[in-house]
Design a protein around this nucleic acid. Sequence first.
DNA 1: TGAGTGTTAGT
DNA 2: CTAACACTC
Length: 455
Amino acid sequence: MTAPILIWLRRDLRLADHPALAAAAAEGPVVLAFCLDEQGGRPFGGASRWWLHQSLAQLGGVTLALGRSEQEIPRLALACGARAVYWNQSADPVLRTVEDRVQAALTVPCRIFPGDTLFAPGSVRSKSGGQFQVFTAFWRAALALPPPARPLPAPAALHVAPCPGLELNALGLMPKLEWWRSMASAWRPGEAGATTLLGAFLDGPVQAYHRQRDRPDHDATSRLSPHLAFGEISPRQIWHAAQAVPPDDGVRTFLKELGWREFSRHLLANHPTLPQVPLRREFAAFPWRDDPAALRQWQMGRTGYPIVDAGMRQLWATGWMHNRVRMVVASFLIKDLLIPWQAGEEWFWDTLVDADSASNAASWQWVAGSGADAAPFFRIFNPVTQGEKFDPDGSYVRNWVPELAHLSTAVIHQPWKLGRVPGYPPPMIDHAAARTRALAAFKGLRGAPEQPRFL
DNA sequence: TGAGTGTTAGT
DNA sequence: CTAACACTC
């Protein structure tokens, strides 16, 4: 009996489309290993831990070698007598340093395979060989490359060897409080759930995607993001499934969103500090405010702006927020409250079931105006206008902010017009004044224009 | 993948 | 009077 190969699953629970699983399966028995608690030193957020538990539990019948941190991979390999270790390379340079340490500590050979992108980080380059700074140029260049490879079929047989490890339930991934019940009713973690969602989406909604995707009150998006984040479905599967649908604006727009994911990963690969440090250096000098009480109001969905509060409560309840609303709440935190985007990035990391370092960091920097191809800082979302435009009859707000459910459509996005609504806070800040303040703060960045000089 | 404001051509 | 546009932040 040959010794098994240990496959480090990292975050890709199913190793969807990755050659590591296929290669190892062809070579004999395998041990599947998964490490919890850390992603390159950053603990999983609470929502992600819940998702992980559900997903791992569904690998029913498959025994996993479970470790607490990635540093334990060499120990697990030793414990199960593996003759080799395979894994998928990450796009995140911080995780790559973890990989380097793991590799250095291994006493058996290892093979590292490409990560989970359509276009490997670094493969989409401008004519001068550099990182694209503009998304549309990036995506045009990507689409001109040879198309992404077809998804790999699942191994016909996977001989999983027994292994020592921790018991899933002993890992304490499930929270003590039962806040996950509302998440459980919104999602079906696991590969089957992902496949169902993709099929249902490509079967109809995708055709209206370009027109409907900005409507949080409609169920117009695929909701595949958490499945993608945990490798339960791969971008290559999505890409090739979408090729079977007649190409139209809906499909193109949908695939373009995968493009943003790719763009983010390219950016993170080139800028390891993307989650912490503004890409545009001048933002280091921005006059942010330290205001824990205001941050808390935003987190709890009690800002007094209905579209913002609806979004934050949808996030809290389901671990997900509609993309349009993400932009609105992010703009509110950054520009109205002048709270550092990193605080929002951290909250999203904790509460999103689709939390992903690259997409999360790149998107927050996009809103802040400090990223690549970012919204200019003076592009400030008006929460009332955005609400009226994208939730025109107020049903999204009514759904998530029950205190406002009885309001007429005319005032649903500006309830203060009625005076005080019982149970709902007044606006925590006057948007018009906040906008002026943000513009002034931004202007200061451009270096005080030279003082007038008198000759 | 903004919004406020002013201008103007078209009703 | 209004929609479309340009310009600015």
